[in-house]
């Protein structure tokens, strides 16, 4: 139990570090990679919390697909050249230098708060299998997923395909 706890704590620390790197790094590509890294670490945490089904989705979709989308967007829009990046960097640093400090203050400040941590709820009649819950209880969500995926398809048609024709 003690080892588990320490391990989880360690994962949390590197999660924060990855998030911070995502925000602070100066190149957009690295920022997108940092996002994927954050996603992977989140997946680790989910794995530790026994959510097997979600880990697959998070790893393939969030860490994989979304970083592909971001990186292709960045390369499509031709990011700045090296010298321009260096020029922008100073101004960026002036704006973002306070963030780690802010994060530290937030973390330390919050750890002094006392909260009631007893969230255990009765687990009597609920399903234990996520697949059954998804299909039997959350079927309206599934319908919503179908609608939203269709919307996404038409979004791609409208925003990307007609653009190329122009």
């Amino acid at each position: 139990m003690q080892i588990n706890y320490t391990l989880n704590l360690f994962i949390l620390v590197i999660l924060v570090a990855a998030g911070l790197w995502t925000v602070m790094t100066r190149s957009l590509i690295r920022s997108a990679i940092g996002l994927a890294l954050t996603s992977v670490i989140l997946t680790l945490l989910m794995f530790r919390f026994d959510s097997w089904l979600v880990t697959v989705f998070e790893l393939s979709v969030c860490a994989g697909l979304i970083s592909v989308i971001f990186i292709s967007t960045i390369s499509l829009t031709e990011p700045l050249t090296k010298s321009e990046v260096l020029k922008h960097m100073k101004a960026r640093l002036a704006r973002f230098i306070y963030l780690p400090l802010l994060i530290l203050v937030v973390g330390v400040g919050l750890s002094f708060i006392k909260v009631n941590l007893n969230f255990q709820l009765p687990v009597a009649e609920i399903e234990a299998d996520a697949r059954k819950v998804l299909w039997n209880m959350r079927d309206l969500d599934l319908l919503g997923q179908v609608v939203i995926i269709m919307t996404g398809i038409f979004g791609v048609i409208v925003l990307f395909r007609e653009m190329r024709r122009k």
Partner: peptide, 25 residues
């Protein structure tokens, strides 16, 4: 995890991920 409704949480997160991808696209 904390409330013991793991299955429901997973079902919700799967839908959330789908919505997120379409939004980002």
């Amino acid at each position: 995890y904390v409330t013991g409704h793991m299955a429901l949480a997973q079902a919700i997160v799967i839908t959330l991920i789908v919505v997120e991808v379409v939004f980002i696209v």
